[in-house]
Design a protein around this nucleic acid. Structure first.
Length: 288
DNA sequence: CTAGGATCCTGTCAGC
DNA sequence: TGCTGACAGGATCCTA
């Protein structure tokens, strides 16, 4: 269930491990997970070299020497695993990092030069990979409508302009809206609102520009911290001693901590449902 | 145009 | 031991 920091972590892994390699073969285990025009796989994928690993919001982009790109979205359960001289995985944390691959959740497998393989695993099949010309990525509907990148430049003015269009929404739904600000998902929404001391069910119109800016700053802080911690990768999934780790422990204050004390005030963290999503907050620090 | 709910899919877990 | 419903780190589609 990767959000911006997890996707950025995957991007960095791919930059190191697959940029410069050639794609020799592709095996598609689930048709919906891999979309390409007729003949494009043969003409623009096989034999092409991976030139760049980019990210926009939660979308990963591998540019190829053929003028085409692999555009991927991990959605809820997508995961990328590299097997070669080293063994690396990122994205949705589960045992597929460790098992023999392909397995039953493998949707696409790439064979790369230098005896390496790249696996796209995705239990729920919501994720996708599209092979399209590099030049048309910016014309994709989803990409075109995205809000500003939180970790690049100064997103504040544009964020405020866009979130004000959602005055009647609850704040949590508004910051999950990718056309308002790019990259925030359920974890970082809850963590940001806790940091900014804003109740997730507050209406946007009832919040000041100052409060909204504080939420943005909080989101930037927690996502930066998460990237530094290494995202949800094999490394954070398995501790050095071989025991199972939990990368949420590295930065989360409220997410999946219902029933536990708030690290700031000691009140008991609650879990409720806000705009259809499980939502964690401190009833004492975050009042409407 | 915005807002809210159903929907895509597989797997796990709590509660009978 | 089974069954059943709720839920899951996302975004789109449909309706009002």
């Amino acid at each position: 269930m990767p959000e911006l920091p997890e996707v950025e972590t995957v991007r960095r892994g791919l930059e190191k491990l697959v940029v410069g390699r050639q794609i020799l073969r592709v095996e598609i285990f689930n048709e919906k997970s891999f979309q390409a025009g007729k003949g494009d796989v043969e003409n623009f994928l096989i034999g092409a070299k991976i030139v760049t690993a980019r990210r926009r919001a939660k979308v990963l982009i591998l540019d190829l020497s053929s003028g085409y790109s692999l555009v991927m979205h991990l959605k809820m359960t997508g995961q990328i695993v590299f097997r070669g001289r080293e063994n690396w995985g990122g994205g949705h944390p589960n045992d597929s990092f460790l098992t023999e691959l392909p397995n039953k959740s493998t949707r696409v497998e790439f064979e790369l030069s230098d005896d390496a393989k790249l696996f796209f695993n995705d239990q729920r099949k919501f994720g996708w990979i599209k092979l399209i010309p590099t030049a048309v990525i910016d014309e994709m509907d989803f990409i075109k409508k995205l809000g500003p990148e939180p970790l690049t430049g100064d997103p504040k003015t544009e964020f405020l302009r866009r979130i004000r269009r959602r005055g009647n929404s609850v704040i949590k739904a508004a910051i999950l809206d990718q056309t308002v600000i790019a990259g925030i998902g359920n974890i970082y929404a809850d963590e940001s609102l806790w940091l900014a001391k804003i109740h997730p069910s507050s209406r946007v119109r009832d919040l000041s520009d100052k409060q909204l800016s504080e939420i943005l700053v909080a989101a930037i802080d927690v996502m930066t911290k998460s990237i530094k911690a290494g995202g949800s990768t094999m490394k954070t999934y398995i501790n050095a001693d071989g025991s199972k780790g939990n990368y949420l422990d590295l930065f989360a204050n409220v997410f999946r901590r219902e029933g536990k004390p708030c690290p700031r005030c000691g009140a008991t963290i609650e879990k409720i449902r806000v705009s259809g999503r499980g939502t964690h907050f401190c009833p004492n620090c975050q009042k409407i």
